Simulated assay, not measured.
Amino acid sequence: METVDCKQKLLIQKKKMKITVRVHNGMSRCHALEVVESDLIYNVKAKLKAKVLFIDDAIIEYDNKPLADSCALKELHIQEGGQFEARYPNLIFVRSLTGKTMRFLIDDHFSDTIIYSLKEKIADEIGFSPDVQLLVYGGKQPKDDCTFADCHIQHGSILYVSVRLLGSLRQIFVRTLTGKKLSFLIDGHFSDTTIYSLKE
């Protein structure tokens, strides 16, 4: 009797099924996965890693309930074809032209966050001031005073940033003794600029 129970447990652990995970990152794509009932949510995320950016930061939901990484699929009594949701609460991703992807946690009032405040966060990462950054989302360049809601930017959305240096404009940075980084745009003859004029 005990041997039969052990065999049944092994069969449950090895029983394969297909599920789908809809990733809400501004594109809302579905990914099909093959899993076994003994898999944890942690294992589901591991299977998604090759396909989905920063999946470790996502919250996986089933039946509108957030799941801990330690939750086993068998506890959810899911059926073949069960659908899960992956969401990124308060997270935004920004890709630069060099291929670097940055993640930013937006604290409170996500929808009311303005583009310029996101650019300030990006400036700390890439070293270029908000004034020379070009942000693109959904093929459009949102204005600095637009909110995320105005631009339909959602939790987990991916934006793209490039830097615009027009004509003879050059940007330099000065770090103060307190550690604060200051950014200055120099117009005209960069090499002829004096330290005194910079101090002004």
Rank of each mutant, 00 (worst) to 15 (best):
residue 100 K to Q: 10
residue 27 M to P: 02
residue 155 H to N: 14
residue 64 N to L: 10
residue 100 K to I: 08
residue 72 A to R: 13
residue 70 S to P: 00
residue 106 I to A: 05
residue 28 S to C: 14
residue 76 L to E: 02
residue 192 D to W: 00
residue 81 G to D: 04
residue 51 K to M: 10
residue 18 K to T: 15
residue 5 D to I: 14
residue 22 R to D: 04
residue 33 L to N: 05
residue 42 Y to A: 13
residue 109 H to G: 04
residue 52 V to M: 05
residue 102 M to A: 04
residue 90 N to T: 07
residue 19 I to V: 13
residue 185 L to W: 00
residue 140 K to L: 07
residue 23 V to Y: 00
residue 25 N to V: 05
residue 95 R to Q: 13
residue 196 Y to H: 13
residue 110 F to V: 07
residue 58 A to R: 00
residue 150 D to L: 09
residue 136 V to I: 11
residue 73 L to V: 01
residue 199 K to Q: 07
residue 197 S to L: 02
residue 40 L to T: 15
residue 95 R to H: 03
residue 69 D to L: 01
residue 196 Y to C: 10
residue 90 N to G: 06
residue 28 S to G: 10
residue 68 A to L: 10
residue 43 N to G: 11
residue 115 I to A: 02
residue 51 K to H: 09
residue 121 K to G: 06
residue 95 R to C: 06
residue 139 G to R: 07
residue 34 E to D: 10
residue 32 A to E: 15
residue 136 V to Q: 09
residue 69 D to I: 02
residue 119 K to E: 01
residue 51 K to S: 13
residue 3 T to R: 13
residue 192 D to H: 02
residue 15 K to S: 15
residue 22 R to C: 14
residue 20 T to I: 11
residue 118 L to C: 09
residue 191 S to I: 02
residue 29 R to K: 15
residue 8 Q to G: 09
residue 134 L to W: 00
residue 108 D to W: 03
residue 137 Y to Q: 07
residue 156 G to I: 09
residue 175 R to F: 03
residue 16 K to M: 14
residue 110 F to I: 09
residue 125 E to S: 09
residue 35 V to A: 08
residue 6 C to I: 15
residue 149 A to C: 12
residue 142 P to C: 01
residue 153 I to E: 05
residue 93 F to S: 10
residue 122 I to S: 01
residue 66 P to H: 03
residue 107 D to Y: 11
residue 173 F to H: 10
residue 112 D to L: 07
residue 171 Q to I: 06
residue 85 E to M: 07
residue 99 G to A: 06
residue 140 K to Q: 13
residue 12 I to R: 06
residue 62 Y to I: 01
residue 163 V to N: 05
residue 93 F to Y: 13
residue 55 I to A: 04
residue 172 I to A: 02
residue 64 N to I: 02
residue 143 K to N: 13
residue 163 V to R: 08
residue 196 Y to V: 08
residue 103 R to Y: 00
residue 81 G to K: 05
residue 33 L to F: 04
residue 10 L to G: 08
residue 91 L to S: 01
residue 7 K to R: 12
residue 94 V to R: 01
residue 77 H to I: 02
residue 107 D to L: 12
residue 13 Q to R: 13
residue 152 H to N: 14
residue 127 G to Y: 01
residue 181 K to M: 13
residue 87 R to Y: 12
residue 182 L to S: 03
residue 137 Y to I: 09
residue 121 K to Q: 15
residue 182 L to G: 03
residue 96 S to R: 02
residue 76 L to G: 07
residue 96 S to C: 09
residue 90 N to Q: 14
residue 16 K to I: 09
residue 165 L to R: 06
residue 152 H to V: 06
residue 112 D to V: 01
residue 55 I to Q: 05
residue 190 F to L: 00
residue 95 R to V: 07
residue 104 F to D: 03
